[in-house]
Protein backbone atom coordinates (compact mmCIF):
# COMPACT_ATOMS: atom_id res chain seq x y z
CA UNK A 1 0.00 0.00 0.00
CA UNK A 2 2.87 2.32 0.84
CA UNK A 3 4.35 1.58 -2.50
CA UNK A 4 1.15 2.70 -4.19
CA UNK A 5 0.80 6.05 -2.53
CA UNK A 6 4.45 6.76 -3.29
CA UNK A 7 3.74 6.08 -6.92
CA UNK A 8 0.76 8.35 -6.89
CA UNK A 9 2.67 11.25 -5.43
CA UNK A 10 5.52 10.98 -7.90
CA UNK A 11 3.09 10.68 -10.80
CA UNK A 12 1.08 13.68 -9.71
CA UNK A 13 4.28 15.71 -9.33
CA UNK A 14 5.58 14.71 -12.72
CA UNK A 15 2.45 15.77 -14.59
CA UNK A 16 2.02 19.47 -15.39
CA UNK A 17 -1.34 20.87 -14.33
CA UNK A 18 -2.78 21.96 -17.66
CA UNK A 19 -6.34 20.66 -17.61
CA UNK A 20 -8.90 19.27 -15.25
CA UNK A 21 -8.88 15.74 -13.91
CA UNK A 22 -11.94 13.49 -14.13
CA UNK A 23 -12.76 9.94 -13.24
CA UNK A 24 -12.91 7.84 -16.39
CA UNK A 25 -16.41 6.81 -15.29
CA UNK A 26 -17.54 10.44 -15.74
CA UNK A 27 -15.78 11.10 -19.06
CA UNK A 28 -17.72 11.66 -22.29
CA UNK A 29 -17.06 10.52 -25.82
CA UNK A 30 -14.30 12.66 -27.31
CA UNK A 31 -12.56 13.30 -23.99
CA UNK A 32 -8.85 12.65 -24.25
CA UNK A 33 -5.93 12.95 -21.92
CA UNK A 34 -3.38 11.11 -19.83
CA UNK A 35 -4.01 8.64 -17.02
CA UNK A 36 -2.56 10.16 -13.85
CA UNK A 37 -3.75 7.67 -11.28
CA UNK A 38 -5.22 4.19 -10.98
CA UNK A 39 -6.59 3.81 -7.48
CA UNK A 40 -7.78 1.07 -5.20
CA UNK A 41 -10.15 3.18 -3.09
CA UNK A 42 -13.31 1.76 -1.61
CA UNK A 43 -16.02 3.45 -3.67
CA UNK A 44 -19.04 1.66 -2.24
CA UNK A 45 -19.72 0.05 -5.60
CA UNK A 46 -19.84 -3.68 -6.05
CA UNK A 47 -17.39 -4.78 -8.70
CA UNK A 48 -17.69 -8.51 -8.06
CA UNK A 49 -14.05 -8.50 -6.94
CA UNK A 50 -12.32 -6.42 -4.28
CA UNK A 51 -10.88 -3.05 -5.22
CA UNK A 52 -7.26 -4.24 -5.11
CA UNK A 53 -8.11 -6.97 -7.62
CA UNK A 54 -9.98 -4.46 -9.79
CA UNK A 55 -6.94 -2.18 -9.69
CA UNK A 56 -4.62 -5.00 -10.75
CA UNK A 57 -6.91 -5.96 -13.62
CA UNK A 58 -7.06 -2.36 -14.81
CA UNK A 59 -3.27 -2.17 -14.66
CA UNK A 60 -2.87 -5.45 -16.52
CA UNK A 61 -5.11 -4.20 -19.32
CA UNK A 62 -2.84 -1.19 -19.75
CA UNK A 63 -4.71 1.37 -17.63
CA UNK A 64 -1.46 2.62 -16.16
CA UNK A 65 -0.20 6.05 -15.16
CA UNK A 66 1.22 7.86 -18.16
CA UNK A 67 -0.89 6.07 -20.77
CA UNK A 68 -2.73 8.19 -23.36
CA UNK A 69 -6.46 7.63 -23.27
CA UNK A 70 -9.44 8.76 -25.36
CA UNK A 71 -13.09 7.82 -24.96
CA UNK A 72 -14.19 6.77 -28.46
CA UNK A 73 -17.56 5.05 -28.09
CA UNK A 74 -20.34 4.46 -25.61
CA UNK A 75 -23.35 2.17 -25.41
CA UNK A 76 -26.87 3.33 -26.31
CA UNK A 77 -28.45 2.69 -22.90
CA UNK A 78 -27.18 4.91 -20.08
CA UNK A 79 -24.05 5.76 -22.13
CA UNK A 80 -22.64 2.46 -20.94
CA UNK A 81 -20.29 0.56 -21.45
CA UNK A 82 -17.55 2.75 -22.91
CA UNK A 83 -14.80 1.98 -25.39
CA UNK A 84 -11.50 3.78 -25.01
CA UNK A 85 -8.38 4.04 -27.08
CA UNK A 86 -5.55 3.26 -24.71
CA UNK A 87 -2.18 4.11 -26.29
CA UNK A 88 -2.42 1.98 -29.43
CA UNK A 89 -5.12 -0.48 -28.41
CA UNK A 90 -8.87 -0.35 -27.88
CA UNK A 91 -10.50 -1.55 -24.68
CA UNK A 92 -14.15 -1.75 -23.59
CA UNK A 93 -15.24 -1.50 -19.96
CA UNK A 94 -18.22 -0.55 -17.84
CA UNK A 95 -18.41 2.90 -16.27
CA UNK A 96 -18.99 1.23 -12.90
CA UNK A 97 -15.48 -0.25 -13.04
CA UNK A 98 -13.85 2.84 -14.54
CA UNK A 99 -14.14 5.15 -11.53
CA UNK A 100 -10.69 4.27 -10.19
CA UNK A 101 -8.98 5.56 -13.33
CA UNK A 102 -8.21 9.27 -13.04
CA UNK A 103 -7.62 11.10 -16.29
CA UNK A 104 -6.00 14.51 -16.77
CA UNK A 105 -7.89 15.95 -19.73
CA UNK A 106 -6.12 17.83 -22.52
CA UNK A 107 -8.82 20.46 -22.82
CA UNK A 108 -8.77 23.15 -20.14
Amino acid sequence: MNNLSMDRVTMADATPEVGITVRLSDASVGDRGVIVDVRADLDGKDHGVDVEELQRRLLEFGFVEGARIEVIHEGAIGHDPIAVRLDDMRVALRRRDAGEVIVLLDRP
Binding site: H47, G48, F61, A83, M89, R90, V91, A92, D97
Partner: peptide, 13 residues
Protein backbone atom coordinates in the same frame (compact mmCIF):
# COMPACT_ATOMS: atom_id res chain seq x y z
CA UNK B 1 -26.11 -11.36 -4.43
CA UNK B 2 -23.49 -9.12 -5.90
CA UNK B 3 -22.62 -7.90 -9.32
CA UNK B 4 -20.90 -9.90 -11.98
CA UNK B 5 -17.20 -9.66 -12.75
CA UNK B 6 -15.67 -6.47 -14.06
CA UNK B 7 -16.24 -6.40 -17.80
CA UNK B 8 -12.99 -5.55 -19.57
CA UNK B 9 -12.31 -6.60 -23.07
CA UNK B 10 -9.88 -5.72 -25.80
CA UNK B 11 -11.49 -4.58 -29.06
CA UNK B 12 -9.06 -6.08 -31.57
CA UNK B 13 -8.30 -4.48 -34.93
Amino acid sequence: RGMSEPFMMELPT
